[in-house]
Amino acid sequence: MTKCHALYLACTAAIVGTGLGAAPAAAGPAPRAPHAIRVVLPGQSIQKAVDAAAPGDTVFLTPGLYRESVTIAKSGVTLRGAGHDTVLQPAPAKNKAANTCAAEGNGICVTGTKDHKLRGVTLTSLTVSGFTKNGVYATATDRLTVRNVTAEKNGVWGIATEASVRTLLRGNTARANGDAGLFLANTVKEEQGATDTRGTRVLDNRLEGNRIGVTVRRLRELTVAGNTMTGNCAAVFVVGDENKPKAGHVTVRDNRITRNNKSCPKTARLDALQGSGIVLTGAEDSVITRNVITDNVGGSPLSGGIVLFKSFVGTTSERNRISDNVLRGNSPADLVVTDTGKGNTFKGNSCKASKPAGLC
């Protein structure tokens, strides 16, 4: 008999020995069912496993190729792969009509609503590749985590969020996507003022070969830190416009931004891009600090190490603090200001050339 078993019997005997006249103990809460791990093999349906999952469950994808799009529409679910060898690619065309996520060209959709945000969803350790629109598309989420996901060769965005708060994007790789590797916005289809993300963090990601590494559009209270960005047309865009409240209160710090010299053609809303490190356009009260920005070279109006540029509708950037960055070999200059906004400051930066002169 083990010591634990003996103690259990002793406690039971003690309770019985107290006599039948003792008041019964109040019933405690029913024990919670253990969270399930639902294992999916290549050829099996990820969607069926997700639909069967309860909050707190993990759907684990073993290594292999999955030709499927997946919608997560309940809180607390984790979708976990086995690393780079777990790959999601588009389903055959005949299978797309039954799945809205697939029909819209996305790989993984995390779908809340305006009145019911999905909470605590996690995506981790897998690859989403070759979708005509987005690798991962999340809307109306709270505390979404996307970690160690590779999003590559998707037609628009690698990993995208809208109308979401307290998001963590960490340790992901986004490469060769048609637009932004990571895209974060208040809304995609509507016009409205910037929204407070309540501390969204974009940390330690690798972004390469995209049109833009990270786009932050019409948001506030967000941090982009510790990322490595190379080979994009532009590394970071912080974007605002005429809507109120204005975009801003974004911190961009401790990133390594080098040789983002891919050439991208002009679009309906943006000039051609090449050689842009960090671009602020129509943003306020943001902090750009301790970044290392080197060898970003191009002939676009948006080229340069750190660039302040009027927004598409002419809104200026104001009261932004650019400090303690290291800038080398950027052209036409390390610091470029064509914006007439007031209150922007440049202090402690290590750089050689600026337009206009005197900012270094």
Score class of each variant (00 low, 15 high):
residue 161 T to R: 10
residue 244 K to E: 05
residue 254 D to V: 07
residue 169 L to M: 11
residue 179 D to I: 02
residue 214 V to Y: 07
residue 159 I to T: 10
residue 245 P to H: 04
residue 201 R to Q: 08
residue 150 T to H: 08
residue 209 G to T: 08
residue 181 G to H: 03
residue 186 N to T: 08
residue 189 K to T: 08
residue 213 G to H: 09
residue 218 R to N: 06
residue 230 T to C: 10
residue 185 A to I: 05
residue 195 T to E: 10
residue 220 R to Q: 06
residue 154 N to E: 09
residue 216 V to I: 13
residue 223 T to W: 04
residue 234 A to Y: 00
residue 222 L to Q: 02
residue 167 T to R: 10
residue 212 I to S: 08
residue 190 E to K: 02
residue 229 M to E: 15
residue 232 N to T: 12
residue 195 T to C: 11
residue 173 T to G: 13
residue 192 Q to R: 11
residue 188 V to T: 14
residue 233 C to A: 14
residue 252 V to Y: 13
residue 252 V to Q: 14
residue 169 L to P: 00
residue 165 V to T: 07
residue 214 V to A: 11
residue 231 G to Q: 12
residue 213 G to Q: 12
residue 218 R to H: 01
residue 213 G to E: 13
residue 248 G to R: 00
residue 169 L to Q: 09
residue 238 V to Q: 02
residue 246 K to W: 01
residue 158 G to V: 13
residue 192 Q to A: 07
residue 215 T to F: 00
residue 209 G to W: 03
residue 182 L to R: 05
residue 244 K to R: 12
residue 252 V to I: 15
residue 243 N to Y: 00
residue 159 I to C: 08
residue 239 V to T: 04
residue 243 N to R: 06
residue 216 V to M: 05
residue 227 N to D: 14
residue 234 A to G: 12
residue 251 T to G: 04
residue 212 I to F: 08
residue 200 T to Q: 06
residue 161 T to I: 13
residue 202 V to C: 02
residue 152 E to I: 14
residue 219 L to T: 02
residue 185 A to W: 06
